[in-house]
Every structure is written in C-alpha cells, then in structure tokens.
Amino acid sequence: MSRPVPPFPTLNAPILDGTVRHLYVHVPFCPSICPYCDFHVLTRKSGQVEKYLERLEAEAAWLASQYDIDLDTVYLGGGTPSFLRDAEIGALVGSVRRHLGWGAAENTLEINPGTVSPARAALWRELGFDRASVGVQSLDDATLKFLGRQHDAAGAREAVTTLIGAGFRVSGDLITAVPGQPLDSDVHGLVDLGVDHISAYTLTVEPGTEFARRGVTVHEDDERAGFERTEALLTAHGFARYEISNYARPGQESRHNLAYWNNRTYLGLGPGAAGQYPLAPKSGGTLTSRRTNPHLHTWLTGEQGEPEPIDAEEYVTDALFMGLRLRAGLNLNDLSRRSGLDVRARYAQVIAAQVQRGWLALDGAYLRATPAGWWVLNRVVTDFLEA
C-alpha cells in the first residue's frame, strides 16, 4: 500500500525518464538444485521448456505494447540460462530481439561451468552476449562438494578460460564464509584466470533450503572475516569494491546491476521476474510501479503479478536501500530531481543522526554508507522508513 507523502518540502513535478533501458529475463531451469539456493528454480521436465518459450514470446510482445523501450542492457539470470539447449536459447534471444530489442551497452548470460564448451561459447557470442557471469563459487573441490556444485575446480578453470578466449567479459561468482574454505587461494585463483569482475557473496542459509534442514549455520565472525579478507586481497590485485559484494577492475562494473542499485526502471520477463516500470504523467502522486511475476506453473497460465504503485516516499527509501550498497553512495540532488521530494530536507534528522553514529557520511551532495554502516544497513534504512 502506498503511503501518503507528508507535508515536507517538495520540488517541482517529478522527473523520471519514461523510457525503459534495462531488461531482466528469468530462466528457472537448473540441472540440479543447490542446497543453499532459495531462488525460483526447478529441474526441467518434458515439454516444460517449450511451454516456457511460448509464454515468454507472448509476454515480451505484451511488454513491447505497454512501454517505450530502448535497451542498454539485457541480463539472462536464473536458474541456469546456459542449461538451455542451443536451439532453446536461440529461440529465447529471438523473442527478445523481435519484441524488445537488444542491449546497446551490455548483454549478460549467467553460466554454469559445466555447460561450457568452445562451440557453445562461440554460439552465445554469436547470439549477442558479451558478458558472462560464471557460477564458480570456489576453486576448491572440497568446498564445491559441500556447496552441492556439480562441477569441480578444474572444470571451473577451464570454463572461465574458454569464455575469456571467446571474447567475453567474465565475472566470477564466489561464495565466502564456507566452513574450511581456502579463501585466499580461491581469490588468487580467480584473479589469475583473468576475470575482470568478481561477485563475492557470504554463504546465507535461508529457510526452506536443504542447508536449513541440515542445520548449517554461518557465524558472524566468519562472515566478517571473509568480508574483510576478500576486499584486502582483491584491492591488492587492482580490483575496486564498488558495491558491498562486487569488485571490478576499472571500467568493468556491471552496467545492468548498476541500474538496480541506482533505482532505475527495468523490465522483468519470465516466471518469478520482478520489474520496476514507469507510469504515465499525472498518476496521482505515483512515480513507478513494481510487479513480480508468479512462479512457473501459474505464469504459464497467463497470470501476471499485481502492480504495486510506488509513491515519492517509497521511491526514495528504495533508492536509499539500494544506493547505500554502492561505495560511492547516491547523489541526493539527483534523487530529489527524480522523485520530486526534497530528500535532504525530508530526512535531515535521520541523516544527521546516522552521520554522528558513524554509519553514514555526507560528502557534498553524496550520501554513502561507511564500512561500519554496511554491517547495519537494514537498521540504517529502517530509520529512514520510520522517520
């Protein structure tokens, strides 16, 4: 439910670009379900992918009829998009291109190391993908076995080498705080392979997962040690931490994910996919609309998620939650311009209190979280919500 905007200072009418420039496509199929995974994923069954592709085409056509679209980035996530057979991923890309176009700046494919071969890498490049996000997770066989991964360290190394040789910009995923993990050699190994981007996520045990049923736990001391050690190692190798969990060599940041962290509009295509959509002018104080698609079986019937209107207050708090994940933080002047709400005046007391605690820093127009603030970011954002 939207909250009414209180009588705090506002600017002129909100200014939001009505053109959608980013597309996320969800492919829910996986060869197996990892014990830590709580995403909408499932193993494929006979005829299921064909139905998925038919429904995807129809949804892409519908999105094209609803919005002004000029794509900068496309991201195929999952699930395991690279698990699709060659003809299937070709059909998916064809549907996107026919109805929505293709990214002018960056097109990412999430890839499982076990699905890579030189021929497949060449096909993915021909289809228009230029960035690969590879689920390496570790380069230690014992750690990979604990995580339930189907590939081994040698397979991960070969996959990354093959993709770089095919001309991809490669990002390697790494899970930290795993019991017994040789973190230093994992980080050094990924860097030595030649990746230009690393996403390092702490192992999280979510309710309903196999790890939760087994009673696997992650200790905060291990989480913090992995958090700090990963940054120290990657910084020494010339990587910059530009977001809480993401590191890149200069110019190799994920353009698509930066759209999320900067609270831009984007399309969500496929079962379980979320999108943030622009609205027509004079929409009763609403700036954007958020919609999350239902899971596969319901989505295949043609159902879509209900749109949730986002007003200026919620738009700003969403932007703060995402933007404070970035090392650079967010520009309050730009956020005020986009939302129509004078953010600095509206949240002056909260900002001052957080700066005094050492959780936030205000540098000119830029508000950013300190390293201490990153550890309590949910608390920081809650204070904004309760203001």
Rank of each mutant, 00 (worst) to 15 (best):
G101R: 02
A87S: 15
G103L: 00
I111W: 01
E88L: 10
V136Y: 11
G101N: 02
R97F: 04
L127S: 12
E88K: 07
S133D: 12
R131S: 04
G135H: 08
N112H: 14
S82Q: 08
S82E: 05
A91I: 04
I111V: 15
D130I: 05
S82A: 12
R85P: 00
T108H: 02
R125N: 10
G94I: 00
L123V: 07
A132N: 03
N112I: 03
R98S: 11
R85T: 05
E106G: 07
I89D: 05
S95D: 02
T115E: 07
R97A: 10
G90W: 00
R131H: 09
L92A: 10
R120W: 07
Q137D: 07
Q137L: 08
G128H: 11
G103E: 00
A132L: 03
A132M: 02
E126V: 07
T115A: 09
R97K: 15
A91W: 03
Q137W: 07
R98E: 12
G128P: 11
T115Y: 06
E126T: 14
A105I: 11
R125K: 15
G103A: 03
N107F: 00
L92T: 02
V116R: 07
V136H: 09
E110A: 04
A87G: 14
S117F: 12
A121E: 10
A104Y: 00
S133Y: 10
L127V: 14
R125T: 07
E88D: 15
V136G: 13
R125H: 14
P81C: 06
F129I: 06
Q137T: 03
G135P: 10
A122V: 14
V93W: 01
N107C: 14
R120Q: 14
D130R: 04
P113K: 02
W102L: 04
A119G: 11
E110T: 05
V116W: 06
A104E: 10
R125Y: 09
G128I: 10
I89L: 13
N107R: 05
N112M: 04
S117T: 15
G114P: 06
L123G: 06
L109N: 06
V116Y: 06
D86K: 11
L109E: 03
R85G: 14
G90E: 15
G90H: 02
A87L: 14
V134E: 01
L127D: 11
L84M: 11
A105S: 12
A122N: 06
F129C: 08
V136E: 09
D86T: 12
P118Q: 12
R120I: 07
R125C: 10
I111D: 02
F129H: 04
L127C: 13
E126Q: 15
S95R: 01
Q137M: 10
E88P: 11
I89P: 04
S82N: 07
V116T: 12
V134A: 02
I111C: 12
